[in-house]
Each structure stands twice: as structure tokens, then as C-alpha cells.
Design a protein around this nucleic acid. Structure first.
Lengths: 222, 222
DNA sequence: ACCAGTGTTAAGGCATACTTAAGAATAGTA
DNA sequence: TACTATTCTTAAGTATGCCTTAACACTGGT
């Protein structure tokens, strides 16, 4: 579950990222509006948390452009002002929710969970990779047409890797997405799970980048 | 099958909820328009029963907003007035049906079942799975031709699971569809009901996904 | 060839789920 | 309203299987 935080206030952006990671999300953080727009176009996020006051390209323009380009991603707007017209403008421009700064972390987390839950219910995004089909909606996985039973950890790990083929996930990133920040694991549990996944599918599925982490190869052609 | 009742008249709202629960639905009840709008955005309901005269945000605005936001949920509108223009306005705004107060409980229940059936896209209101037949209308269930007596909770649980074979329902989702948010349950009641269902049918009917929830296997093929 | 990093395997611990039964709650009836 | 029957929840004990651990084998890089 990948979330992009676009916020130029350093302490706020950092705090949000930490809090998000603690909740088990993967959080990326950008402070620049133009960079953010490019990231949104090129990568896939499950949610964008968008401050309105940004350098180089303001939040409202980003929001408008996202909807113009029909990019399907929920957006949670942050603003320092609490003017009604801003709120209305934001919602009109296609924001999924709206939070006025300063906000309570607990509250914003609840809203984030609500948005993510909602959007998951809508989009039936079926992840496909070679002969593997993974439907986040029903938690079902098939390989060459046959159903494959994955345990919870295996499922989380696989869906994380499959969410961005070609992207190298560091061991730390994967461990974090499996366990959050609370309880660190101090053994080779991750490697064991990788092993099980390779066994249930085929061993070339997940490539090891020695000293770094793991990747799923991009399908041919790309 | 989860239904949201939005009605500021206490006795009417309460009466509707009781009647709905008796029919095997899960009913949540709100009296405030704004709260209702938020609930509709954040939760998932199979039907909204909407009074037009509401505090803070009137029914027609809610209805309009639901359709603006493209939230997919059937709406049954209640109104005290019987003016034709209201009726037309409501239907134009996207109501699925329209009932004028005071109404007969039996009649409204029939309409509710009709709407729900229609929205599920089932021509025949009969859910079949292997040797199990479940008719939403009468709350009757047969297994291998013989009638099986299910209690209300068992029925709700089974119909929820059967509504989407192959879909993994998380424990939370099932608890919510059984109880709404009125009364939370804090024990293993869900597991007990699952146990009873397996006993009344066969234990392989419901598969456990450890750490996640439960599924009914898709029949062979796909 | 050595060493750090990674793969493989198996077993024990522990969280999760099942089972059972009894006491609350609810619905039905007079 | 009170009484009874059914249904639901709670709780405790038991069973199950996933996850971690750890020990050892392997692999690639220097």
C-alpha cells in the first residue's frame, strides 16, 4: 500500500511518513510540486496526501491536472486555511477528503484508512504477471490457472513485489512492509518467505540483488 | 446485507431497523444528514433508506451528492409529502424507489427486497451453491433438498459469504455485516457462528484464511 | 580459496482458530 | 407482565498451522 506525501513543511512531512510507516503503509515524500506531478504520472500510488501550498506547482493545480488526465488515485488535501471556498474548491476539483492544518495525527490516520478502504472496494485491480494472477480484492492467487494458497506473509510479500515490477526492494523495505515498525525480526525470516514463494511459483520469479534486496523482473518488452 | 436508515423521526427509524433486522438485514440508523453523508462515503451499504426532511443536510442534497460522486448504492426515498414534483425530482436525482409516508411496513419490505434483488443483478432471487439453496425472500435454506433451519445470524453470515464465492471476507468485514456499528462484539462469536454453519452443512464449505478471514470456494471452473 | 551474504530445511513456539458448554439476551406466547 | 423457548455471546480449554529460529549448505565476489 503505497502513499505519496506532498508537503513542503519538513517536520510535518517527516512526521506523516513516520506515522504512515508505523501503520504499515509504504510512504514516499516529496516537497516539490512539479516533481510530485511527475511522480504521480509515472508511478502508481494508492493515495496522495497533498498540501495546497507548494513550490513550483501548487496543490490545486496538481489536483486539477490529476483529474484532467483521468489518473485514478484518491487524494487527501491538506490546507492551512480553513476558508469554506477552499474546501468547496478542493472537493469540486476532485479531492476525496479534506483536512485543515493543524490536524490531529489520529484523525488523519482514520481518514486515510477510510479512503484507502473505500477505494479498494471500488477498483478491482487485478495484478497480472506472466502466469500469476493476484486479485487484491479477493486475496486470491492463481498460477497457470490453478489456485495457489498463500499464507498472510507470503501474500503481503508477493503483492508488494508485484506492485512494482522492475523496482528493487531493499530488504529493509520488505521487512518493514511485512512487520511495520513495531517488531523487528532478527533472523532470516524474509529469506524463508522468499524461498516459499519461489517454491510455490518458480524460482526465477524473484531475482536476488546481492547486498541490496529483491526484484521481480519486468515482463518482456518493457 | 447492510442497510443504512436515515430518518430523524425516532419511532419510525427505530421501527424500520427492528423490522429490517427481523428480515435478516443488518441495519444502521442515523438521524443527521451530514453524518449520513459521511457514513455513505466511508462505509459500504447495500441500500440507503433516505428521508427527505433531515437536519443539517437534507435528503435531496444527499441524493444529489451520492450520484455526483458516483457512489454505487441503491437509494429508497421516504417523504411526508405526496407532491408529484417531489416524486419526479427524487427519481430524477437518482432514487431507485419512492415511498410516501405513512407507509405500510409489509409494503416497504417488499420494495426493499425488490431493490436489493435488482441491484444484485439476480434475475432469480435464489442463491445456489453446490447442494445449498438460499432464497433471500423467505429466509429459507435447503441442503440436499432438505430444509435447514438457520438462525438470523447464521443466515446473514451465510448469505454474505455466498454472495461472492471466492472472495475472502476479513473477519472485520463479516463482523460489520453482522452487527453494523451499533453493538460491537468482543469475543469469538463470529467463529462460533462459522462453526455452527459448518456443522449444519459440511465443514469444507467455509475455508479459513488464517490471520485474515473466511472464504467460500468458487465452484470448479472459474 | 575465503568470506559475507543468501538459500534450504526442519522443528518448536506461539498466535490464531475450533470446540464445547453455560449463562445472557431476545423473541414468542399467554 | 411474566414465563418459556430459542438464539446469541462469553469464556475456557484444546487443537492447528504459520512463523520464526537456527544450523548448515551454497553462491558469488574479491
Amino acid at each position: 500500500m503505497r502513499i505519496l506525501v506532498v508537503e513542503d513543511d519538513t517536520s510535518l512531512g517527516d512526521g506523516l511518513c513516520v506515522a504512515l510507516k508505523r501503520e504499515g503503509f509504504t510512504a514516499d515524500w516529496l516537497t516539490d510540486g512539479l516533481q510530485a506531478m511527475q511522480a504521480i504520472e509515472q508511478e502508481t500510488f494508492d493515495l496522495v496526501i497533498l498540501d495546497l501550498g507548494l513550490p513550483r506547482m501548487d496543490g490545486m493545480s496538481i489536483l486539477t491536472k490529476i483529474r484532467e488526465k483521468a489518473i485514478v488515485v484518491p487524494v487527501l488535501v491538506l490546507t492551512a486555511r480553513d476558508g469554506i471556498d477552499d474546501r468547496v474548491g478542493g472537493l469540486d476539483a476532485g479531492a476525496d477528503d479534506y483536512v485543515v492544518k493543524p490536524f490531529d495525527l489520529v484523525e488523519i490516520m482514520a481518514r486515510i484508512r477510510a479512503i484507502v478502504r473505500r477505494s479498494k472496494g471500488r477498483a478491482v485491480s487485478l495484478i497480472t504477471h506472466n502466469d500469476i494472477e493476484l486479485s487484491p480484492d479477493s486475496m486470491q492467487v492463481t498460477y497457470q490457472g490453478k489456485g495457489v494458497t498463500l499464507t498472510r506473509r507470503e501474500y503481503v510479500l508477493l503483492s508488494e513485489l508485484l506492485s512494482r515490477p522492475g523496482h528493487v526492494f531493499t530488504r529493509d523495505a520488505l521487512v518493514q512492509s511485512l512487520y511495520g515498525w513495531g517488531e523487528e525480526v532478527e533472523s532470516n525470516a524474509l529469506e524463508v518467505h522468499i524461498h516459499h514463494l519461489r517454491k510455490k511459483f518458480y524460482s526465477e520469479l524473484i531475482r536476488t540483488i546481492r547486498g541490496v534486496g529483491y526484484v521481480i523482473e519486468k515482463p518482456v518488452g518493457d
